[in-house]
Design a binder for these strands. Structure first.
Length: 265
DNA sequence: CTCAGTGTTCAGTG
DNA sequence: TCACTGAACACTGA
């Protein structure tokens, strides 16, 4: 379930497993889709014998800083995840790469629907696709003034803008819906029609939703009960929020959108 | 059996 | 150029 908070939880998991440790073994699955612009063999060569100096994330992308370039970059797509374990018998299904560290811990990336990607980059931040991303709203939220000005300059539907990775990197479908719900804004409104106050509220809700979701390592069971998140699926239309308002489903910006017409204007 | 989906990209259109 | 739509990608689970 990889949007920014899930990906950040994955980065933390990878950091805890591998930071400061040397890679002694890399196993890969033959896959010419997930390995994008590279090969399983090249990724093995890049990692084997190297030490993980640090882990980084921007939006939904993660990469490992090694003691030699290039560095491996990971994107989870719709279904990817990192899994950490010690025994090879615990290797998860749909694994694409398994890294074994000198202290015996293993890290695997899984990807059941194969929309995830593994890439090699010499300077991930300076090269596509990470170089094309906008600000990471967890690490570097723009000031209210800049945020308001940016919205004023964009005609795109506000939900579409939130999903645009070149605007705010890491926001996905449920976060966009949650933030618009909490800010009381109709997802279909053009961004440049939001008032200054609405834009500031949107920014504040984006920051608070991300802060909370990251703080609980994207464990949905620990999201506040007031969030629409818990009721957006399941019974579909007619389901009620925690406050009793009806949730409707429409398509906005090409994505299924859950919203509360009585609260979002 | 059918279809939607927590994502991204690209062709086509206006 | 900008912005939007729909399709494609690939596969699972409801």
């Amino acid at each position: 379930m990889p949007e920014l908070p899930e990906v950040e939880a994955g980065r933390k998991l990878a950091a805890g497993a591998g930071a400061g440790h040397r890679v002694v073994r890399v196993e890969t699955v033959d896959d010419d889709i997930v390995y994008d612009g590279t090969t399983p063999e090249a990724v093995q060569r890049c990692l084997r014998g190297r030490t993980i100096l640090d882990t980084h994330r921007h939006g939904k992308h993660i990469w490992f800083e090694l003691d030699r370039r290039p560095w491996p970059c990971f994107h989870f797509g719709m279904t990817g995840a990192f899994v950490v374990y010690r025994d090879q018998t615990d290797r998860p299904r749909c694994w694409k790469i398994e890294i074994t560290y000198a202290h015996g811990v293993r890290l695997a990336m899984t990807n059941s629907r194969r929309l995830g990607r593994v890439r090699l980059r010499n300077d991930p931040r300076a090269e596509a696709p990470i170089s094309t991303l906008g600000f990471d709203p967890y690490l570097e939220m723009p000031s209210p003034t800049v945020f308001v000005e940016t919205l004023r300059s964009r005609k795109a539907i506000v939900k579409g803008l939130l999903l645009d990775q070149s605007f705010a990197a890491g926001v996905g479908n449920w976060i966009a819906d949650e933030v618009l719900f909490q800010a009381g804004i109709d997802p279909r409104r053009p961004a440049n029609t939001l008032s200054v106050q609405e834009a500031k509220t949107l920014r504040a809700k984006l920051a608070s939703v991300l802060k909370k979701a990251v703080a609980v390592d994207a464990d949905a069971g620990r999201f506040p009960r007031s969030w629409m998140f818990h009721r957006r699926w399941g019974k579909r239309d007619g389901q009620k929020t925690a406050r009793g308002e009806a949730i409707e489903h429409i398509t906005v910006a090409g994505r299924t959108t859950a919203w509360v017409p009585s609260r979002q204007r």
